[in-house]
């Protein structure tokens, strides 16, 4: 699992290879789309159906801080530290904004 430093993130908009059906360049991933990666474990709208913690009903600051703490290994985790490192700080802010605003 050793991979060089993450570099792809910002390069993507530039790459934006021409897709036959979707002629336009992709726009940056929205908070809504980024947050859709959370629900597979945390449940629809962040309401967990099992033992994984729910993440709805939290403030933007709480969510962003938790993700940044996971990302920087300041908070113990099983899998969230591995996930959080997959997102830029700006994306984490967008995820936190989306969830706090729309997941009740």
């Amino acid at each position: 699992m050793t991979r060089p430093i993450r570099a792809t993130l910002l390069a993507l908009a530039a790459i934006a290879a021409a897709s036959p059906a979707f002629a336009q360049s992709p726009v940056p991933t929205s908070g809504r789309t980024l947050a859709a990666t959370c629900t597979g474990c945390h449940g629809p709208a962040g309401r967990s159906a099992g033992e994984i913690p729910s993440i709805n009903g939290r403030t933007e600051t709480q969510l962003a801080q938790a993700m940044l703490d996971f990302k920087n290994d300041r908070r113990p985790a099983t899998v969230m530290n591995r996930h959080a490192k997959g997102f830029s700080d700006a994306e984490i802010a967008a995820i936190a904004k989306e969830i706090s605003a729309n997941w009740r």
Binding site: M1, P4, A7, T8, L9, I15, F87
Partner: peptide, 14 residues
């Protein structure tokens, strides 16, 4: 993430 060469895992994560 997607690149012109295919879908790649974000490096340094996962």
């Amino acid at each position: 993430r997607s690149t012109a060469q295919g879908i790649v895992a974000v490096q340094g994560a996962g």
